[in-house]
Design a protein around this nucleic acid. Structure first.
Length: 207
DNA sequence: GGCCAGGACACCA
DNA sequence: TGGTGTCATGGC
């Protein structure tokens, strides 16, 4: 359990940094995302206003290590423009809405899909919602807890119905799933699942 | 040199 | 509505 202890996942220094990271990490490794965020910080542009005043081409150049830089520059521009126009770039105003309203709002923004929206809600707004990513799907499919072709919503419901509604729990559980998912990529036995059972045994008793 | 990583969107049948 | 193409870096 020690090696899978508290993961301190999503190392963003601010909610806005988490939001930017959530978009940059789409189909990308975190190492590239870290470099892109470092570039934004160095350019003093890691803020809603900072990104808004940055030309899209320059923004794309700065986030180049995160791959798909042109597409993601467009998405980040859409995010900060929406934030400015709808919430005066005030994240407190955005996050004080109830979870489902916040989710609908985020999903209306170009470039934010279900996983990205849920990541923002959990890690930036710190509201209890379960993030379903490729690793999570891979693991529960391997464990035959759900059908292979399960939808995002159904997969999310599986965890929500079996876990306490606790932000820290969802945060830690998701982090552990990603760590486990990386292990599952290699031909390694699934004894790691004991870590997840340790946190919430009920999730694994429901088959 | 090839594969793949913490997705989302546009387009088409 | 579901399947497919596109985006397009960097580490291993």
């Amino acid at each position: 359990m020690a090696c899978y202890g508290p993961q301190h996942w999503w190392p963003g220094e601010s909610p806005f940094e988490v939001m930017v990271g959530a978009i940059l990490t789409q189909q990308a490794s975190w190492t590239g995302v870290e470099k892109a965020i470092a570039n934004l910080k160095a350019a003093n542009a890691l803020s809603p206003e900072g990104l808004r005043r940055l030309p899209e081409s320059e923004l794309a150049r700065l986030i180049r290590p995160a791959i798909y830089h042109n597409a993601k520059a467009k998405k980040l521009k859409a995010l900060v423009n929406w934030l400015g126009e709808s919430y005066g770039a005030d994240l407190t105003r955005l996050f004080k809405q109830d979870t489902q309203t916040l989710r609908r709002e985020l999903l209306s923004v170009y470039g934010i899909g279900e996983e990205t929206a849920d990541s923002i809600i959990l890690y930036a707004a710190e509201k209890p919602i379960f993030v379903i990513d490729a690793y999570t799907r891979r693991i529960i499919a391997r464990l035959e807890l759900v059908p292979d072709n399960i939808s995002y919503h159904a997969c999310q419901s599986f965890f929500v119905s079996n876990l306490p509604q606790d932000t820290r729990m969802f945060n830690e559980y998701h982090a552990l799933l990603v760590q486990l998912g990386k292990s599952v990529c290699r031909p390694r036995p699934l004894h790691h699942e004991c870590c997840l059972k340790d946190i919430c045994p009920t999730a694994f008793s429901a088959e």
